[in-house]
């Protein structure tokens, strides 16, 4: 049996790209095989999309229901996957020592985070595909420019919410992460300007919500996909949240 140890090649890491891709594939498979995550990632956004398309909530806002609803639901997908789903998974990984073990392998801390980002992007791609197809059947016809801008904002939003999710997962107990990210999802989805434009409620509320990452992403997505333009203010706000969230996560994230 000593052939395992004395005759084996000298220990060495796989290439950086292979390590990160392998971790991304592993994390994505774990995410997509989790029933609760699938409900959060696919079922709830689809129910939201259909509800907004068949009820008069979005009537009188200058465009068809499905055209207004779809950008917000796509933004909600980024919130679901990057913030709630990834946050909860990371919180429990931290509890069970998975973060410590994996960071002791050649993957390291940086590779572990990169793998999580890849998993979020893979899951988000699947969400975008499914939601877009369903929205297409319901009459959604975005412009080419809108699609390109929308995808860029989705990636920026996913990065922002991943940083915020990791910040929570790395600083509080997993049970608290579960509560905070789920409650955050409900509040931001309902009132955070991500699904419904905040103007729908009041100008005062719109003035507050546009400073939130949810409101900024929702506004940026609607500007991109409804009008084919970049909402500069929303972009700046989103970038500021991304930078602040990343710096805070780097500073305060605890691995054990």
């Amino acid at each position: 049996m000593s052939i395992f140890f004395s005759d084996a090649p000298r220990a060495a890491p796989a290439s950086l790209g292979r390590r990160v891709l392998s971790q991304g594939r592993y994390e994505a498979a774990a995410m997509l095989s989790n029933g609760e995550q699938l409900v959060l990632m696919i079922v709830m956004p689809l129910l939201g999309l259909i509800a907004l398309a068949v009820t008069p909530i979005l009537d009188g806002m200058g465009d068809s229901r499905i055209n207004i609803a779809t950008p917000g639901i796509l933004a909600l997908s980024a919130l679901s996957t990057a913030f709630t789903g990834q946050g909860i998974a990371t919180g429990f990984d931290r509890r069970y020592g998975v973060l410590r073990f994996m960071s002791s392998t050649p993957l390291g801390k940086g590779g572990l985070i990169a793998g999580k980002v890849i998993a979020v992007l893979v899951a988000l791609s699947i969400q975008v595909l499914i939601i877009s197809v369903v929205a297409g059947f319901l009459g959604w016809r975005p412009s080419g420019v809108g699609i390109v801008l929308g995808l860029l904002f989705l990636i920026l939003g996913a990065g922002t919410f991943t940083a915020l999710g990791l910040l929570i997962a790395g600083t509080v107990r997993p049970e608290a992460t579960l509560a905070i990210t789920n409650l955050g999802w409900i509040l931001l989805a309902a009132l955070g300007g991500i699904v419904l434009p905040a103007q729908k409620f009041s100008d005062t509320m719109a003035g507050i919500v546009e400073w939130l990452p949810s409101g900024a992403l929702g506004n940026a997505m609607r500007a991109a996909l409804l009008e084919g333009r970049i909402d500069i203010f929303a972009t700046v706000i989103l970038c500021a949240w991304a930078a602040a969230g990343t710096m805070a996560a780097v500073k305060w994230f605890k691995w054990n």
Binding site: A8, P13, A14, R19, S22, Q23, Y26, T105
Partner: peptide, 9 residues
């Protein structure tokens, strides 16, 4: 198998 994929040999 996943952990093994992080090593070259």
């Amino acid at each position: 198998r996943h952990v093994a994929s992080l090593y070259s040999h």
